[in-house]
Design a protein around this nucleic acid. Structure first.
Lengths: 153, 153
DNA sequence: GGCTTGCTTCGAGTGCACTCCAAGCCGTTA
DNA sequence: TAACGGCTTGGAGTGCACTCGAAGCAAGCC
């Protein structure tokens, strides 16, 4: 079963790797841009653009020059996607990967960047919950279950 | 005490009204654009722009032509600000207020709009929590408390 | 062979949400 | 009275994050 699991791990689809980017990624270039696009939700255009601006390291190419993404690329992309989805500006993401390229000595800076983003994320969660309460109330009003004391705004 | 409370309610500052927009708002135009800007976090430019595109009804003016916002304006603005803060596009906010202007018969549409946004908000909260978990893990790694199995991405 | 699909390049274009500018008016403070 | 800060306008400008176009190459399939 262990043998099977590790065998299957080698065959994980692009989608699976992206959705659950754990463990040591292998660096075999094997995913096409179309697969990565489908898995990540980013368009092929956006994936190329990320590479152009330096968010991704130059991706390996097939014999005919087409991009082949490795699991390691997918891991990075999955993390960057999370940062992006939660509102980090591309410029900050770029700063993070550039620090990472400089190696170990920048780990403090990177940690600080993530700490700051974590605070931003917490703030967003608080804002969203507060808004959820307002929405729940207004929807109740629209459903006619409560007095419509505030329905005009 | 009731008399005092209602007396003070008349005197609520722009900031207070914006932060806690409850009860029947009075329509006396009394807040300057600068006050509203400070209370709402929106710039004066943005407030004028919101009015220009129809998100706010035409605001009352002083004798010399300057804007004077009423508590009712602040209530609407507070709600719109929440929608905006939680990612609703300006176009959708506009649709909402235009429906509201059409009166009672559009209340179903408005409710649907809010229902859809509530779903979007819930989705955002889920995404943020998932990212928080990833950030917590990575920050632990950077703090050296865990094996650095994923520090390269 | 011919068709479809997907990929390549990079500069230009798009959409959103502000954000600013210039010229001038108004009310208050020194 | 003179300066100062805040307010007015419409239109133009900005920054971000994509998003697309055009021309062409390559692989898979009937």
């Amino acid at each position: 079963m262990t043998a099977l699991a590790s065998f299957e791990a080698e065959l994980r689809t692009c989608w699976d790797v992206f959705r659950d980017p754990v463990g040591a990624p292998d660096r075999t270039p094997r995913h096409t841009i179309g697969e990565v696009s489908a898995a990540s939700g980013l368009t092929a255009h956006t994936l190329r653009w990320y590479e152009r601006i330096g968010l991704l390291d130059p991706v390996d190419r097939s014999a005919s020059g087409q991009r082949r993404y490795s699991d390691a690329d997918l891991h990075r992309l999955a993390f960057l996607g999370r940062l992006r989805l939660t509102g980090m500006p591309v410029a900050d993401m770029l700063r993070y990967v550039e620090l990472a390229r400089e190696g170990e000595r920048t780990s403090g800076d990177r940690r600080d960047l993530l700490l700051a983003h974590r605070e931003a994320v917490r703030q967003q969660i608080a804002d969203l919950h507060a808004t959820l309460a307002v929405l729940d109330h207004k929807i109740d009003v629209y459903n006619g279950r409560l007095a419509r004391c505030a329905a005009s705004h």
